[in-house]
Amino acid sequence: MTATRPATVAGGPLRIETLPSLPGLAGLYARGAAASGRIAAGRALPHLPVVGTALEPGDGPLALPDVAYRVSGVETDGLAPHLRDYQRLVHEPASDTMPAGYLHVLAFPLATAVMVRGDFPLPLLGMVHLSNAVEHRGPVRVGDLLEVRAWAENLRPHRRGVQIDLVAEVWPDGGGERALWRGVSTYLAKGFHLPDGSPSGVDGSPERAPSGTWAPPLPTGRWALGPGTGRAYGAVSGDRNPIHLSALSAKAFGYPRAIAHGMYTAARALADVGNARGDAYRWTVHFGRPVLLPGTVDVAVTPAEDGTGFRYVGWNAPRRLKHFEGGVVPLDA
């Protein structure tokens, strides 16, 4: 997955639309408004629109917007407190170097902005985060001047609907040979079908074995996730999807309790790998059953059998349910 300039959607060229600043996050930390920490950080984030003006299922052919958002001159000077809050939350060591998960958070508002466009064909709420793949090509530090791009692509069928990739990239400001960071978030929109009626394809998500039949490996760790885990990550990431915030709000969307952000669990796993991941790495995750909060997640973060990088998997031990699995593989910088 080589990072490339956004080129085409469904064969056509993308129109690049330059925004003056990152939505929501723009300049906020840079202005130091959030110098006093986590709570302020959460408040400072704008309430992103949570209900898209999407077309109803079956309401005509589905097509992704042919636009890519770009924000240049993104200053990171003032992000240190926010980065520190993020690092504490996901158990990363304190550093002025941004972990891959943090860049996901940084680019998230722009990617969300794509999804809340009026011409975006799917509803933001109710979309399921299936998997995520990140190439982190080198260290990005507080103070670096960046350019962030985001677009949607690769609308394709899934056995339970359609899936799309939200692609975000972080570049050195003014461009360069390649992106410093590129993340592809794959979402599922249930109940939608592509106009050509193509059959359910490979969805890339881990196989969902019936409850109680999957046999986990020996754990290398155990996470005790408190009831506020979703709120805490929501505050830092800006992803305040109600399914993460409280049992009540989650029930409205069919979950018995609040569920942890998938990217939070993946970020914890990434942190668990530690220094062995190096400065450049490919970080992937496939999400399985959601992690209900509060909850205990057994994890195995182990060197890969082939000797390159690490594999990780998280599960609910009593119920033998797999929550997520993925890998962290060093890249040649």
């Binding site: 006093s36 709570i39 302020a40 754990p219 290398t220 760790g221 155990r222 996470w223 668990d272």
Partner: peptide, 25 residues
């Protein structure tokens, strides 16, 4: 201003854990 940032949940005391910090086991 500093104290206003304390939330009720923050008041819960932490007892020492014998869990390995790095693994949670």
């Amino acid at each position: 201003k500093a104290l206003a940032q304390v939330r009720p949940g923050d008041l819960k005391p932490l007892t020492p854990a014998t869990d390995e910090p790095r693994t949670g086991l």
